[in-house]
Amino acid sequence: MDEAIIVDAEFVAPVGTTAGEFVPIDRAPAAGLLLLVAFVVLYAKVISKLGKPAIQEFLWEIITRIVPSKQLRRRKEAQLRAIEVHTQRSNTSSQDQFAKWAKLDREYGKLKVEIEDINNSLTASKARFFTIISSAIFLSTTGMKMFLRIKHRKAAIFWLPKNAFPYPIEYILSFSSAPLGSVSVSAWLMICDAAMDLIVTIFVALVVGVIGMLRSNKVKPKTA
Rank of each mutant, 00 (worst) to 15 (best):
D197Y: 12
K100P: 00
K162S: 05
Y171K: 15
F129A: 09
V219D: 09
L111E: 02
S177E: 15
K222V: 14
I133P: 09
I115H: 02
A102I: 00
A224M: 10
V185G: 10
K145Y: 02
V183L: 02
M196S: 03
R149G: 06
K49A: 13
F58R: 09
A164E: 05
A194P: 02
F130K: 06
E61T: 14
L111C: 02
M190I: 04
G32I: 02
L33I: 13
K103F: 07
K220N: 13
A205D: 11
V113G: 08
P179C: 07
P14G: 08
R74C: 05
L206T: 07
I202G: 11
T142N: 10
I55L: 11
A155V: 03
P168F: 07
W60L: 14
F203K: 05
M1W: 09
P166N: 10
K222N: 12
P179Q: 07
T142S: 09
I63H: 13
T18R: 09
P68H: 04
T142K: 07
V207K: 01
A9D: 15
G16L: 06
R128T: 15
L50F: 13
V12A: 10
G20M: 12
K126L: 07
R153D: 07
F203M: 06
G209Y: 01
V204G: 11
I47C: 11
L42C: 07
I47H: 11
R27M: 12
A124K: 11
P68C: 03
M1P: 02
G209A: 06
T141L: 05
L214A: 13
R153F: 03
L206A: 08
R27F: 04
F138W: 11
Q71K: 15
H86F: 12
A102P: 01
I132P: 02
A54K: 01
S48Q: 09
G212Y: 12
Q97D: 13
F165R: 14
M190K: 12
A187N: 00
E57C: 01
N120F: 00
C192P: 01
V37T: 05
F129W: 02
I83C: 12
R89A: 15
F138D: 13
D96I: 14
N163S: 06
I137N: 10
T131S: 15
P24I: 05
R65T: 10
V46E: 00
A13V: 04
Q95F: 13
A44Y: 00
R75W: 03
I137F: 05
R153N: 12
V183R: 09
A19T: 03
K49I: 04
Y108K: 06
A38W: 04
R27H: 09
F22P: 04
D2W: 14
T201Q: 08
F58S: 06
V46F: 11
V210Y: 14
N163T: 08
